[in-house]
């Protein structure tokens, strides 16, 4: 964690009000390029809302967002994905009626640009099959290539979602609780995968599994009641009395 100050993603005074209730208020966030940055906090702290704001699935009530120095505060979400800032969802987001292979291929297909060619055979997509298969293999899903995604177990859906996100080869990934509901062996595999993909990418992730957070992240921002409570390395943050207090109520260590 060097102080180069090369921030790939920056949010300033980010605020989201639902009616009178501020789910996120005045959050300043700066994610350094090439790091794994964790966003933690008790349930309802506003982590998912932050993700929705950063990827523009929600329009901020206030504040500004910069990606690679570019103001993306008013950009539509599909355009943000095209810039290389891609998110996953807390509730596993797969395409249930498409096979696992087709799920990954939908992401690879983006390399063609738009796919409005309705007159062409889908055989035009066969050239992505090899890469899609390699992506599935990476997350341990090769044998489920032909299985409809909706029929996969919860943990496998999460793994498929990660494979799909990775297939876009994004510069930065936002992962919302990627390991929630996974068996321990899957957690280890996905942890290792995240560490590996972070070698040439930036990752911002929400995760409740604190040992994973401790292992993986370079920097941690703690959110509580929509506001930044603390920020720093795991050692610093985990000793912060305010953080400990915020976590007592929800039983985290």
């Amino acid at each position: 964690m060097s102080a180069t100050g090369d921030f790939i993603l920056k949010a300033e005074r980010l605020t989201k009000r639902f009616g009178g209730f501020a789910a996120v208020s005045n959050v300043d966030l700066a994610v350094e390029r090439g790091t794994i940055h964790a966003l933690i906090g008790p349930n309802g702290a506003g982590k998912t809302t932050c993700f929705n704001l950063l990827t523009k699935f929600l329009q901020p009530s206030d504040g500004a967002i910069f990606f690679n120095g570019r103001d993306i505060t008013r950009m539509p979400p599909a355009d943000i994905a095209r810039l290389g800032l891609v998110r996953s969802f807390q509730i596993s987001a797969v395409f249930p009626r498409l096979s696992a292979l087709e799920n990954v291929r939908i992401a690879l297909q983006r390399q063609r640009g738009d796919s409005f060619d309705f007159w062409r055979s889908e055989k035009a997509l066969n050239r992505f099959d090899g890469k899609a298969m390699a992506g599935l293999d990476e997350v341990g899903l090769a044998e489920f290539a032909a299985t409809p995604a909706g029929e996969l177990s919860y943990g496998r859906k999460r793994a498929l979602e990660i494979a799909t996100t990775l297939a876009l080869d994004p510069e930065m990934l936002l992962l919302d609780e990627p390991m929630a509901g996974m068996a321990q062996e899957d957690v280890s595999r996905i942890s290792a995968l995240i560490a590996r993909i972070a070698e040439n990418r930036t990752i911002l992730m929400v995760e409740h599994n604190l040992s994973v957070v401790a292992d993986l992240s370079d920097r941690i921002t703690v959110l509580a009641r929509g506001q930044v409570l603390a920020e720093g390395s795991y050692e610093v943050v985990s000793r912060d009395p305010r953080v400990v207090e915020a976590y007592i109520g929800v039983g985290h260590g």
């Binding site: 979400p77 969802f89 987001a93 395409f95 939908i106 309705f118 876009l168």
Partner: peptide
């Protein structure tokens, strides 16, 4: 058609893929 089916299955996810 592939993109169409993806949108049918999960619209927000399709948006997040660009």
């Amino acid at each position: 058609g592939q993109v169409l089916k993806a949108i049918r299955d999960n619209e927000p996810r399709s948006v997040s893929l660009g």
